[in-house]
């Protein structure tokens, strides 16, 4: 139950954020999708011991979150919910890789810890990037970006329908589960003997709903073709956004800026 409520809340909050009108929201969805793609590729392309070089990537989420007026708390909550999975796998690194990597006068840090933190930071940045994309673009506009990218209509229609009916069905599932738990005190979930009937009845109702949806589509002339509205044209600003960020990502991939700054500060150059 809390799961159901929580995920509904999560979808709605992201939807609401996507309705804002900021500079970032107004950028063409295709450019945002592509920029996110480049960002993710660059982020994961860093080697497992390249820790400091990763850090300038954080400018992207910082700039976007502030420019797009995205509240930090709900987004970070989501990141923290997902991160433990990554940490679970990453934590093995310090166990298996104990070569000293960083030697400071007072401490030695093993390669395992470096690669662990590298995974952690990558996890953090990639999760953030996906959430920022949906929070500044919204499902409908992402769908129109997919359309421009020549993803078949059938898949997009299907994707949008799934997205549309998630909130309807989560509510329906919630009602059924609530009704069940009201009559079965002290149970954490659905009892074995009711697995099939409870889910099965929900499923049959869902199939009937699908039928009604299909009928209502037919009544408005649906014949297998699905037409999305046109996304407004791309401006120079949109292209500059994409090219600018991509250039930045590529530069920080090739130059370890923090190391340069550090060496400038410390004077450990040649």
């Amino acid at each position: 139950m809390p799961n159901l409520v929580e995920s509904l809340y999560n979808i709605r909050i992201l939807d609401e954020l996507a309705e804002k009108r900021t500079i970032i929201h107004n950028i063409h969805p295709l450019m945002k999708v592509l920029t996110t793609g480049v960002y993710l590729m660059v982020t994961v392309s860093f080697g497992k011991y390249e820790l400091s070089g990763l850090l300038p990537l954080i400018f992207y989420p910082v700039v976007l979150i502030t420019l797009a007026d995205i509240p930090i708390v709900p987004i970070f909550k989501r990141v923290l919910l997902v991160l433990p999975l990554i940490i679970g796998i990453g934590l093995f690194n310090p166990l298996f890789d104990k070569n000293p990597m960083i030697v400071l006068p007072w401490i030695q840090i093993s390669g395992g810890w470096i690669s662990f933190f590298s995974i952690l930071i990558k996890g953090f940045l990639t999760i953030l990037a996906a959430l920022i994309l949906i929070a500044t673009t919204g499902m409908t506009r992402i769908a129109s970006a997919l359309r421009i990218m020549r993803i078949p209509r059938l898949f997009i229609m299907q994707l949008l329908l799934t997205y549309r009916y998630i909130s309807v069905l989560i509510e329906e599932v919630g009602r059924v589960v609530r009704a069940y738990s009201l009559r079965s005190p002290g149970e954490k979930g659905i009892r074995f003997s009711n697995w099939g009937s409870l889910t099965g009845q929900l499923l049959i109702r869902t199939l009937e709903r699908a039928q009604r949806v299909y009928h209502s589509m037919c009544c408005r002339g649906f014949a297998g073709e699905y037409n999305v509205g046109r996304e407004k044209g791309m401006g120079i600003g949109d292209i500059v956004y994409f090219v600018g960020w991509s250039l930045y990502f590529v530069i920080i991939r090739y130059f370890n800026i923090p190391a340069m700054i550090g060496s400038l500060m410390m004077g450990v150059g040649k």
Partner: peptide, 23 residues
Amino acid sequence: FQEPDDQLFMTTVYDDVAFGPRN
């Protein structure tokens, strides 16, 4: 239809109303 949720299957009201004319 009896159940508006069956009839409003698009992601925005605009797209839903436009569905028929676009077809």
